[in-house]
C-alpha cells in the first residue's frame, strides 16, 4: 500500500534519513521504533509532504506521491496525527473535527463523526468546549479523531503515547486495534516500543537515520538491539 524507496532527507546539509526503504501492506499495523533523533518523525513528515526529500520516491496505492502537496496527499487517503498533537486550541472540539472533514462535502461527514464519537465518546460530551482546555489525553484523542475525519485508508501516528498517563495510553491503543479491525492500515512511531509492538504485525528499527533492522513484531521485541535500546533489560549494559 505504502512504499518508501531509498529515501534521503536532509536538514540543510545534515542528513536526517539515509536511504530508508520500507513498505506497509494493506490492513497491517507497522511500528517504526528507534531512539530520539533517529529520524522517525522526519520520515512521517516527508510521507505527508511537509518536508521535502533529497533522494528517493514514495508511492501510495501504486501512485507516486513524492512531489504532491500536503493537502493533495490528505485527499489520497493518508491521515497524520503529528507529534505534539497540533490541535486548534482556540476552536471548539466539534470545529476541530469538522475541519478534519474540511476537504469533503458536508453530507458525507455524519458517519465519520459517529465513528469518532464511538471510539472516543468524551469528544461528543466536550463538543462545544475550546480544544485548548482539554486534558492531554483528550487532546490526543481529538488529534486522532480529527485525522480520522479526513477518512484515511492509512493513518500515520507520531508518538501517540507521549506525555500521557499509562491508563489513557491503554485506551488509545485499544482504539487503534479497533480502527485496524475496521480495515484501517496504521504506521505508528513510538518510543514506548512495548506498546506499539504489542499491537503491530511488523516493525522497523531506525537509528541515526539508518534502517538497521526489520521483521515481525514478536521477533523484533525479542531481539537484543530492541531490548538494549528501549526496554532497559538484557543487552550489553545488564
Amino acid at each position: 500500500m505504502l512504499k518508501v524507496k531509498e529515501l534521503t532527507v536532509c536538514y540543510g546539509r545534515l542528513p536526517a534519513l539515509k536511504e530508508v526503504s520500507l513498505e506497509v501492506q494493506e490492513g497491517e499495523v507497522v511500528s517504526l521504533i528507534g531512539p530520539n533523533g533517529a529520524g522517525k518523525t522526519t520520515l512521517l513528515l516527508t510521507i505527508s509532504g511537509i518536508l521535502e526529500r533529497t533522494e528517493g520516491r514514495i508511492s501510495f496505492r501504486g501512485e507516486d506521491i513524492t512531489d504532491l502537496n500536503p493537502h493533495q496527499i490528505v485527499t489520497k487517503g493518508i491521515g497524520h496525527v503529528p507529534q505534539g498533537r497540533h490541535i486548534f486550541p482556540t476552536l471548539s472540539v466539534l470545529d476541530n473535527l469538522l475541519l478534519g472533514g474540511y476537504r469533503k462535502r458536508r453530507g458525507d461527514i455524519t458517519d465519520d463523526l459517529e465513528w469518532v464519537y464511538h471510539l472516543f465518546p468524551i469528544l461528543d460530551d466536550r463538543g462545544h468546549q475550546r480544544a485548548g482546555t482539554l486534558s492531554g489525553g483528550e487532546q490526543q484523542m481529538l488529534a486522532i479523531g480529527r485525522a480520522l475525519m479526513t477518512r484515511p485508508t492509512l493513518l500515520l501516528l507520531d508518538e501517540p503515547s507521549l506525555g500521557l498517563a499509562p491508563g489513557v495510553t491503554e485506551d488509545i491503543f485499544s482504539a487503534f486495534e479497533e480502527m485496524n479491525k475496521r480495515g484501517l492500515t496504521i504506521l505508528i512511531v513510538e518510543q514506548e516500543a512495548r506498546f506499539s509492538l504489542a499491537i503491530s504485525h511488523r516493525g522497523y528499527l531506525l537509528r541515526s537515520g539508518w534502517l538497521i533492522k526489520e521483521g515481525p513484531a514478536a521477533e523484533l521485541r525479542e531481539s537484543q538491539e530492541v531490548k538494549s535500546l528501549y526496554l532497559g533489560q538484557g543487552g550489553k549494559r545488564a
Binding site: P70, L99, Y102, R103, M149
Partner: peptide, 23 residues
Amino acid sequence: MLLGKAMEASSTDPLGAELVGIS
C-alpha cells in the same frame, strides 16, 4: 463559516492545518 475557521486554524497551527488538508 468553516472557511473562516479554517483560516483561524491555519494561522494558529499551520502544521495541524496542512495535515488535514487546509492549504
